[in-house]
Design a protein around this nucleic acid. Structure first.
Lengths: 211, 211, 211, 211
DNA sequence: GATGAATGAGTGTTCATTCAT
DNA sequence: GATGAATGAACACTCATTCAT
């Protein structure tokens, strides 16, 4: 539908509304699970008519895709800070490893929502592709940092890509396992200890020439 | 209650039926996702009446719990073989590391089904508990093997529990990451290479006194 | 779903229920038009749950097809009586022409329902086919009567098929036109007059060698 | 109210828009049936906002009435040409019969649309009235031509109105029947043959004093 | 003149489940 | 042990329509 200059009609609220809807979608999934998150429930939570959600997303499938994007953007934006401002190379590398070892993405992304989305990817290529790209992006950034650290002789790695993947594997494994570790308390000491272990593992691997 | 032959037969039939239902439940989840797996669809696939499923499981919640058990039993039974028959300690350790590094549980448990079940745990304590116990069991067995290898001076580990957790983390991380790695082809060479890297990582960590 | 001898389950009411549903479908169309005949309205009229209609017909399309069959069976059963018992050939022919000239199928089939169904045929080959066969059947029977009358020298027709089609055309045209004729009162005298004219037309055509 | 040039322009734009909407309404009915022709679909086809259609027609009922008018105007305009310019009375009559025998109104009016509209008349007096008047008009014109032909001794008819109705009946019956005649191919020869038969029938009836 | 926001009733259909047989 | 009848709540979605801009 072309919007001519003369007949503009009502101002679009689409961007804000869509964001708002996705936020509530997210909230309902937390409370009721992905399979329990119906349009009606989301609408009720927003105190609007269910058909309004359809108005903004055409159908639920597109709403789910919107949510996936929302999740992935959140993840991307928060998973790794920008290290390019850190001048000292040793410090830059230490910062990176520090961040990687401390990451608990269930603090900025609800676990149920995240795993629900991730699981959808196995039966939906469009969704899978987004996750692939997400991890590709993170992997690339890690690789980039590894290469820099390497060039400054901070670490010793022949295959930066493999090393980046190893780091990612460790990050994800730690996160995954945390969910089922009965000894995981979440308190500061526990987190510190785990972080330290991951850090040591990484440093061990990047200094002994394994990669 | 007498356990006559007849009674056994009856009981066994119910058991078989339940197994059969769970198997089809599993299959439907693969095709339609957890949220798409309805009693009607399962019944259709089995070519029986939907009421029959209710008859055997009382309600769907209990059917889901049955499925979780089914999954966890499968996982438990297949994740790690029994190494107690291997006499040579070095060989026993090598076998273990070999198995751990090669594990791809998506070969014996469908990824969608597994992650769906895993995700349910975040909102259902009963389910969570089963997963916790599952990993606890695996962790205990790994720890046990580490202790044996340690006592025979094959490896050098002060904190066997931490080492076991590290191995689990690596296993799960590798599995998780595989799903989103665009470079993962699944062919023999690729698998071999990944396996080798995990093996080296483990051996590196258990020999340098990190744990 | 196979119904073994041993486990028969509950007795099927399908045949009766389906008929009952179709009857109410028909009734609702009369009151609200085809486009206004929703499953909910039919169910309400029957004082049952809407999902019960789905239970018996799977979906609305199949319900519509069921209705078409219902209509066509009614039409077939009532449009022409059996003339084979009439022994005297002249009487047999006269009876036929009498019936044909008097037919007002809106007395045994509601006009809205009938035309709605007929109209559906233009966009649905399955429905169209049923109407084609319906008219084919009537045409065949007319042709058969014409041939008999011909062989007994009651009438003089070289092309019985064409004559049969002409009679059908006249029948349908008269019915169609009646609906939009402001002078059509429907009272006895009017009907008689129209009937007489059709009769004369037919007899004129089958005696002067037009066919 | 002054009919200034400007005002004319505005008024004309509305008229054009309304025509445009009705045209697309018509098109959607062809594709989706009357019951499937929603405002949203029409708007989508026109690539305008649904509210615009309401803006021009107030509500759907009035849009339907507009469509009926559109159909009836088209029908009226095309069903019978003006014969008043034909001077020779025999030729004039022959032309008329020729036209009548050849009419296939599904060439200038889609069958689905026409029958849908016609069917609506049974439950809506306003619509019925328009169809009645439509056929009244056609009937009057036929009667007029019959009277002229009679006065010139081309044909022999005592009851011109009855003869006109007969012609209309034949026209409509032929059209109706064509839709369900499996032997109707639509090719030139077939049409020619049918046309010839109708022509003969008419001429037979208007010369033998049946009317 | 035209758009987009928003509603509320309604659509067909699926859901898990109960109960009679 | 198994089926089929029946329900009632819920599902995603479409409907015509109103109103603000």
């Amino acid at each position: 539908m072309t919007t001519s200059f003369f007949y503009m009609g009502r101002k679009s609220k689409a961007k804000v509304r869509r964001q708002e809807i996705l936020f509530h979608f997210y909230e309902v999934i937390i409370e009721e699970g992905f399979e329990g998150a119906s349009i009606a429930k989301i609408a009720k939570k927003m105190d609007v008519n269910p058909s309004l959600l359809i108005h903004y997303f055409k159908n639920k499938d597109k709403m789910v895709l919107g949510l996936i994007d929302y999740i992935i953007e959140t993840y991307s934006a928060q998973i790794l800070p920008d290290f390019s401002t850190v001048e000292d190379p040793q410090e830059r590398w230490d910062d990176l490893v520090d961040v990687v070892s401390r990451i608990q993405w269930n603090t900025f992304l609800n676990t149920t929502v995240y795993y629900s989305a991730y699981t959808l990817g196995f039966r939906n290529d469009e969704i899978k592709e987004r996750f692939v790209q997400l991890y590709q992006g993170v992997s690339d950034r890690l690789q980039h940092e590894i290469e820099i650290a390497c060039s400054k002789d901070i670490i010793n790695v022949k295959n930066p890509k493999a090393a980046a993947k190893f780091m990612l594997t460790l990050m994800e494994g730690a996160n995954y396992f945390q969910n089922v570790d009965p000894e995981f308390t979440g308190d500061q000491d526990d987190l510190e200890e785990r972080s330290k272990m991951i850090k040591e593992t990484i440093n061990q691997m990047v200094s002994t020439g394994t990669f």
